[in-house]
Simulated scan of single mutants.
Amino acid sequence: MAAFTVVDTITKAVSSEMNIGQVMLVRGLFAVLLVAAFAYQQAALRPLHTLMLRPVALRVLGEIGGTISFMVALVHLPLANTSAILQALPLAITLGAAVIFREPVGWRRWSAIVAGFIGVLIIVRPGLAGFSQYSLLALVSVAFCALRDLATRRIPAKIPSLFITLLTAVTVTTAGGVILVPLGGWTPPSTGALGLMALAAVLLLIGYQCIITALRTGDISAVAPFRYSALLWAMLLGYLVFGDAPDVMMVTGASIIVLSGLYAFYRERIRHRALAAESSGLPPDGL
Rank of each mutant, 00 (worst) to 15 (best):
C145D: 11
T171L: 07
V124M: 13
P126R: 01
P156R: 01
V178Q: 11
G218V: 06
L166Y: 03
V172D: 01
F242I: 14
L215W: 13
A234W: 03
G192C: 03
L199S: 11
G207V: 05
D244C: 01
T174Q: 00
A200D: 03
P188M: 06
A143L: 15
K158C: 03
L180W: 10
T187E: 12
L194R: 07
G185H: 04
L231K: 10
L203D: 03
I159Y: 03
A224M: 13
F144E: 08
F163E: 11
L215C: 04
G176R: 01
G184S: 03
A200N: 06
L196G: 00
G177T: 04
S229Y: 07
S221H: 12
V140W: 04
I159Q: 00
L205I: 08
L136C: 06
T213F: 12
K158H: 12
T174C: 14
Y228M: 05
L128Y: 15
A198P: 14
P188W: 09
F226T: 12
P188D: 11
R227V: 01
C210V: 15
L203R: 11
A175I: 09
F131E: 11
T152R: 01
V178S: 13
L203F: 14
V223R: 10
V241R: 11
D244M: 01
L236K: 07
G192P: 03
G243Q: 02
V142H: 02
F242L: 10
A230I: 04
D244W: 00
G195L: 12
L139Q: 10
L147M: 14
L236C: 09
A245S: 12
L128A: 15
A175P: 06
K158N: 11
P156V: 05
T174G: 09
D219Y: 05
L162N: 09
G238W: 02
L215F: 15
Q133A: 14
T168S: 14
R153C: 12
G176Q: 02
T191I: 13
